[in-house]
């Protein structure tokens, strides 16, 4: 099981849209996906038409007394199950703080589902909180939607600085628990090809961020309609370039996650 988190310090960059559509693209390529909506706004939950209800509230969810499994709901898309969010998630930090090893909590809650799913997608709220650190410790890769603007670019740098700071403090940084800090794979979100500033920021990202996922997602009204259609793009706009962009973005992520690197020559 691999875990990716759609994360950005900044809000409004397209995290939920990416989480929903990458989960869908993954499922349509044969991946068993669990999407965990960690944002109290419950936008991913809403997009899959699932009632925003966490049985027992966030307290029970975090305690994990009955396991994460009881919260899982099938979506209408084959291959995607979802752990819904509700407003009680606004107290996630509070309840994490009351557990032992709070930064290991999300990892521990996911552990029993390791054989059931190939991929966990965490849809994270913006900001830097205790929950963020718990997400980092549970995640192989942070997929970071980056709007080609100066402010969004700045938060990408802030994120890498934050991870550098956390090394040694998060489990695994000191050689125990999580084996390593998550990789950071940004991608360009909401690209408007008519704007020269977007071109300039993208060029700068290509030059300075080697881990950048090469496929940009364009800004398009069809993408914004996700909240109206309440389904992934492929369900209502299967031939739109934005759908193709998410599919290609997923293919690139899948290649990085599952294709073995070339074998080292030994003789």
């Amino acid at each position: 099981m691999r875990t990716i988190a759609l994360y950005s310090i900044k809000g409004g960059v397209g995290k939920t849209t990416a989480a929903v559509n990458l989960a869908d693209a993954a499922a349509r390529s044969g991946t068993r996906v669990l999407l965990w909506d960690l944002d109290a706004q419950g936008a991913a939950t809403y997009c899959f038409r699932i009632r925003p209800h966490v049985a027992g509230g966030v307290r029970d969810l975090v305690r994990g007394s009955d396991g994460l499994e009881r919260h899982v709901r099938a979506t209408d898309r084959t291959g995607i199950d979802l752990v819904p969010a509700d407003v009680t998630l606004r107290h996630l930090d509070l309840h994490l703080d009351r557990t032992k090893k709070p930064t290991r909590r999300i990892h521990r809650l996911l552990e029993p589902l390791r054989e059931r799913y190939d991929l966990v997608v965490l849809d994270c709220p913006p900001g830097v909180t205790l929950a963020t650190e718990s997400v980092f410790a549970a995640t192989d890769v942070l997929v970071v939607p980056t709007v080609p603007s100066t402010l969004s670019r700045r938060t990408l740098t802030q994120l890498t600085d934050l991870l550098d700071e956390l090394v040694g403090r998060l489990p695994g940084g000191d050689g125990s628990g999580h084996p390593r800090m998550p990789a950071v794979w940004p991608f360009v979100s909401m690209l408007d090809r008519r704007r020269s500033l977007h071109h300039a920021v993208v060029a700068e990202l290509i030059e300075h961020v080697p881990a950048l996922l090469p496929t940009p997602v364009p800004t398009a009204s069809v993408v914004e309609r996700i909240g109206v259609e309440r389904a992934p793009l492929a369900a209502y706009a299967p031939r739109h370039p934005a759908t193709a962009a998410f599919d290609e973005l997923w293919a690139e992520i899948a290649r990085r996650l599952w294709l073995p690197p070339p074998a080292a020559a030994t003789r």
Partner: peptide, 10 residues
């Protein structure tokens, strides 16, 4: 014959 991802391995 299957796309890159966990399914071919599985």
């Amino acid at each position: 014959d299957l796309p890159v991802g966990p399914l071919p391995e599985r």
